[in-house]
Simulated scan of single mutants.
Amino acid sequence: MAPRKEQQIFQATLELLAAKGYEGLTVEGVAERSEVNKTTIYRWWPSKAALLAAALVQADLLVVEPPDTGSLRGDLEALVRGVAALLTRPPAAGVAVAALGAAVHHPELATAAQHFFADRFAREEAVFDRARRRGELSGTADPLLIMDLLAGAVWLRTVFRGLPLDDDFAARAVGTVLDGAASRALPGPDQGVRSGAGAPEPGGRPA
């Protein structure tokens, strides 16, 4: 099938998913919307589950190209903004939420969702490969965990909590993951007592 026609089918599939949910998505509806004969669609994808699985991975609508800003921090912030745009701007936002809900209730789509996230991480790995070559990333760092923390924060904030994202959300999220949240400036509870003049002796009287 010609790539342009394939993208028309995928676009129609995702638009119908966002508008009507998985239950309302039909191959007939996709055929009408994309102006392609339904027998042609069935020839390539034997069911609507197979069609949606292909659309989730291959449709241009859901593609977030990995950035190359010259630094790991800049790349990660750009990735967070890309995920945020995907989950907050129509029609991609409706597609993502509908696909997630469908995957929960329809086991045949769980694998499709897994393929979607695996494909996205495969694209994002280039960011971490470059960071390693630049010496920005520890050899023990787990890129998948980093992306789970960052993308998961966007999903939780926008989809599940229904909260808006501030303009500096990407920078704050990346900073928390890369730099940590705990203060390193304060001494521990025993520091300063034993090292300072006048520290109490075991009997409780000052030295």
Rank of each mutant, 00 (worst) to 15 (best):
L17N: 09
A170D: 07
W155T: 15
A78L: 10
S71V: 06
S71L: 09
R184N: 03
L178G: 01
V30M: 09
L145F: 01
V36E: 04
S183K: 07
P189N: 11
P67V: 08
P164T: 11
A182H: 11
Q58M: 02
A171I: 06
D148H: 00
N37M: 10
V36Q: 07
A19H: 06
R33M: 06
G204I: 02
V159H: 04
W44L: 14
P206S: 12
P187C: 11
D129H: 13
H115L: 12
Q7Y: 03
R73M: 02
R120G: 13
W155A: 15
A122M: 04
P200N: 04
F117C: 02
W155P: 06
A102C: 13
Q11F: 05
R123G: 08
G139Y: 06
G21I: 12
A54L: 09
F121V: 10
P206L: 14
A131R: 01
V104S: 10
L100Q: 10
L137K: 06
T88A: 14
A54H: 10
A93G: 02
K48L: 06
A59W: 07
R133H: 07
D167T: 14
T40M: 13
T88N: 09
V27T: 12
P3H: 13
P46I: 09
V30D: 04
I146K: 05
T111M: 08
R161D: 15
G162W: 07
R133V: 12
P46F: 07
A18R: 03
T13I: 10
P187M: 11
S195A: 14
E28G: 14
L137A: 03
V80C: 06
I146Q: 01
A55P: 07
S71Q: 00
V64A: 11
S34Y: 04
G82M: 05
V174L: 05
L178R: 02
R130V: 00
D166R: 14
T176Q: 10
T40C: 01
F10A: 00
V174K: 03
T176R: 13
L86V: 05
P200Q: 00
L14D: 05
A53N: 07
L14Y: 10
M1N: 12
D60V: 01
A182N: 05
A103S: 15
G198V: 02
G29D: 06
S195R: 12
R184F: 05
R120E: 14
F121C: 06
M147Q: 04
F169D: 01
D119I: 06
E35H: 11
G24R: 13
S183A: 15
A31D: 01
K20M: 00
Q114S: 10
V30C: 01
P3F: 12
V193L: 15
W155C: 13
P206T: 14
G188D: 04
G21R: 08
V193I: 15
R130N: 02
G203L: 06
T13N: 00
R4G: 04
A78K: 01
G162A: 11
E125P: 02
A112L: 04
D60S: 14
A181K: 07
E65L: 15
A153G: 10
R132F: 05
E28S: 13
R120Q: 15
A207M: 01
A78N: 03
K20T: 11
P90T: 12
F117L: 12
A185V: 12
L72A: 00
H115Q: 15
A49E: 15
Q11H: 15
D190W: 10
A126D: 00
P164R: 13
V127N: 03
G196F: 10
R120Y: 09
A151F: 05
E77Y: 06
D179H: 05
T40P: 09
D168K: 11
